[in-house]
Computed example of a mutant assay.
Amino acid sequence: MTITKRILTGTAAAAALAASMTAAQADTWRYAFEEAITDVQGVFATKFKEEVEANSDHEIQLFPYGTLGESADIMEQTQAGILQFVNQSPGFTGSLIPEAQVFFVPYLLPTEEEQLNEFFRTSTTINEMFPEIYAEQGLELLAMYPEGEVVMTTKEPVTAPADLNEVKFRVMTNPLLVESYQAFGATPTPLPWGEVYGGLQTNIIQGQENPMFFVESTKMYEVTDHITFAGHNNFTTAIMANKDFFDGLPAEDQEMIEAAIDTAFEYILEYQQGLTEESLARIQEDKPSITVTRLTEEQRAPFMEAAADVEAQFIEMTGESGQKILDQMKADLEAVSD
């Protein structure tokens, strides 16, 4: 299916949803996300749905990736009030909310799991600063959570930035990710997710990055030959509500939603324990020829040096607001590293 057809399908589905919104359906809330129902965002959404429906008379209707179009489509539908909830990575909201691109500054987030989880639980940046910024775009930020270490999958092995020279590397439509892979030496190529497998298959692109579970579930390993753990990032995502919808709810419904989010948040952190290694083992079983490289500290050093340029680009893109976000985020990370 072409991207045009997919978007048209998503638009038609959204129009049908809008047309069906009647008073009788006022207690059915619609929630779209960027992954399959069995992927991390789908597992989070399912847990949230279970909690809401167990503790209220409301029903949650889930829309996995592709049912309502691409990532940009579901964000537009949420801002328009057609959807009540959306789960979307800052990688796709980077143009809408430039400060959210801070999560794509390489080597900023820790690789140690408990430190990372505690950061997402306690961060002032996430829990106090970002909600105000998201609200300006008509969004109620309910939570951010990690989805796993990002790995590169490529046609050729990668052990140094020179190995990415002239490699057309797919990135999300995110200005800072473009800067990151330029700094790493690649030729960053923004593409909607629906075009990535075919792009790798036909050699239009030669690499992409994602958490390991997503590499497995989307079978990216079928069209690439090398997996590289560079330690440069952990995939972050955000669950949001349409702000007008959320603000219009009775206090008891708001509290119920927040409690359901808290439960789903802790559930998804536990769910992900060991998930990367389990996914990798299944990939290696399905494709024994795949090579897996974990860069040493020495090998990571030139990538980390390049990250300093990306951080400077983030400040240039976002100005004083971005500087405050970055400074507070570093303080939050320092607090969980003690």
Score class of each variant (00 low, 15 high):
Val223Met: 06
Trp193Glu: 13
Thr237Tyr: 00
Asn174Pro: 11
Val167Lys: 00
Lys243Phe: 11
Gln208Trp: 07
Ser217Ile: 11
Gln208His: 13
Glu222Tyr: 06
Leu191Asn: 06
Val171Lys: 01
Asp247Met: 03
His232Cys: 05
Leu164Met: 09
Val215Ala: 10
Ala251Thr: 15
Phe214Val: 13
Asn203Val: 01
Trp193Phe: 12
Glu222Val: 14
Met240Lys: 05
Pro192Lys: 02
Phe213Ser: 14
Glu209Asp: 13
Phe229Glu: 12
Phe229Met: 06
Thr189Asp: 09
Gly194Tyr: 10
His232Pro: 05
Pro250Gly: 07
Val171Cys: 02
Arg170Trp: 06
Asp163Asn: 01
Ala162Met: 09
Phe184Arg: 00
Tyr197Gly: 09
Val167Phe: 01
Ile205Leu: 10
Asn203Trp: 03
Glu209Gln: 15
Glu222Ala: 09
Gln206Ile: 06
His226Phe: 10
Glu179Trp: 01
Asn174Met: 05
Asn165Ala: 12
Glu209Thr: 15
Pro211Trp: 02
Val167Pro: 00
Leu249Gln: 14
Val215Pro: 10
Pro211Asn: 14
Pro192Ala: 07
Thr159Cys: 06
Pro250Gln: 03
Ala160Leu: 05
Ile239Asn: 14
Asp225Glu: 14
Phe213Ala: 08
Gly207Tyr: 06
Thr218Ala: 11
Ala251Glu: 13
Gly231Val: 04
Gly207Phe: 06
Gly231Asn: 04
Ala238Ile: 06
Thr236Gly: 13
Val167Arg: 01
Thr154Pro: 01
Phe246Arg: 05
Ile239Met: 11
Gly198Asp: 13
Leu249Phe: 11
Thr237Asp: 13
Met152Ile: 10
Asn210Tyr: 07
Phe214Leu: 15
Asn203Phe: 05
Ala238Phe: 04
Glu156Trp: 06
Thr187His: 07
Lys168Ala: 13
Val178Asn: 03
Pro192Asp: 07
Met240Gly: 10
Thr228Tyr: 13
Gln206Phe: 05
Asp163Lys: 00
Val171Thr: 05
Ala186Asn: 02
Val171Ser: 02
Pro157Asn: 02
Glu216Pro: 04
Ala162Ser: 11
Met240Asp: 09
Phe184Gln: 01
Asp253Gln: 14
Ser217Lys: 14
Glu252Phe: 09
Pro157His: 04
Trp193Leu: 08
Gly199Phe: 02
